[in-house]
């Protein structure tokens, strides 16, 4: 695993985001060919995933949702096993029984992925409770969800219990402005979910969710605070879902001007330009990273395509322990 408690280099953040982008673009291509159902991408939201996950330690747990690719890849997941899972192959992280929407990888501390919007919020307190009852365990639990999940009742139940029971949870709301096919402005009286979190008594911050370095700094600061106090905290990354709810989706319902404005603030471009401006990145280095990432994804797709489907008998396994 690549992550550590030391700040990752900006180049590492950049490469992580580029890997996530390349992975999801590969899935978009596969879905366009009609070969993979139900893929939900997080294109445009890579900074939130890379910045937060790279601020965690290997002892921490993450709970994610149907837009999980960024969180899993930033955590060090094997893109080959992920694509194999999406394609329903035996070599996938969940033996092909999850598909793209609910990939868990317990070996990476990515547990109990739920695609029920808000599901991860209902499960995180229990994972955190177990950690508080394990002597010597200072791991925290980071749970990722969107502004849509914040409109579920269990969001409020989860935050309230975490405060009352002092559970070490970093709530990460990726406010991407879209709740499936409905814009956030139609469903919430305010712009920021942070206000709801603050009302529940959490330390709650917003951050530019397209600035990977800013996200990382905020997440690292809040994670340290959670570790020190044992109390939950809330981080809202302000970002935008630049592709549709799932693939394929022609986004007829999206305001083109709003989409263009966010695309102009693409998190990968933003960081690359900053690094280029202060001399930490040049075209040759960028091309090198791009080629490396492309090779990883090519190899992953080939692995997944070459992998076998599960035996039919697998239908009946893993129902009960």
């Amino acid at each position: 695993m690549q992550h550590s408690e030391q700040a990752p280099s900006p180049l590492a953040l950049l490469e992580t985001m580029m890997l996530i982008r390349a992975y999801e673009e590969a899935l978009v291509g596969i879905a366009a060919g009609g070969n993979a159902p139900g893929t939900c991408t997080s294109v445009g939201q890579e900074a939130a995933a890379a910045g937060v996950v790279r601020a965690l330690t290997p002892r921490d747990r993450i709970l994610t949702n149907h837009r999980s690719a960024g969180h899993l890849l930033a955590r060090g997941a094997d893109p080959g096993r992920m694509i194999a899972e999406v394609l329903g192959k035996r070599t996938g992280y969940c033996k092909g029984k999850s598909g793209s929407l609910h990939i868990s990888a317990a070996e990476l501390g990515a547990v109990l992925t739920s695609t029920i919007v808000g599901g991860e919020l209902s499960l995180a307190p229990g994972v955190a409770l177990a950690r508080t009852m394990t002597p010597g365990d200072d791991g925290i639990v980071a749970t990722f969800f969107g502004d849509g999940a914040a409109c579920e009742g269990v969001f409020h139940e989860s935050l309230n219990l975490a405060v009352v029971w002092k559970l070490p949870i970093l709530y990460v709301c990726e406010n991407n402005e879209w709740q499936a096919f409905v814009h956030r402005r139609e469903t919430m009286p305010m712009v920021h979910v942070r206000d709801w979190a603050a009302a529940h008594g959490l330390v709650a911050e917003t951050v530019d969710g397209n600035d990977a370095e800013a996200v990382h700094a905020a997440a690292a600061r809040l994670a340290a605070r959670i570790r020190a106090t044992g109390e939950p905290a809330f981080l809202e990354t302000l970002t935008y879902r630049t592709r549709g709810h799932y693939e394929p989706d022609d986004q007829f319902y999206v305001d083109p001007a709003e989409l263009a404005a966010w695309q102009a603030r693409d998190p990968i471009e933003l960081l690359a330009n900053r690094l280029r401006a202060d001399g930490r990145l040049d075209d040759a280095r960028l091309a090198q990273i791009r080629a490396r990432v492309a090779a990883v994804i090519d190899e992953a797709v080939a692995f997944a395509n070459a992998s076998p489907y599960p035996e039919t008998a697998e239908l009946f396994t893993d129902v009960y322990a």
Binding site: V111, S122, L123, G126, V127, A128, L129, A130, E157, L161
Partner: peptide, 28 residues
């Protein structure tokens, strides 16, 4: 008190917390 707890009157999070705890080594 750590092993015998009152909760808010909120069945969803009571059950969800049990599920998360069960997957993490406890027997709620």
């Amino acid at each position: 008190a750590a092993r015998v707890r009152n909760t808010p009157l909120a069945e969803g999070i009571i059950a969800g917390t049990a599920v998360g705890a069960a997957a993490s080594g406890l027997r709620p």
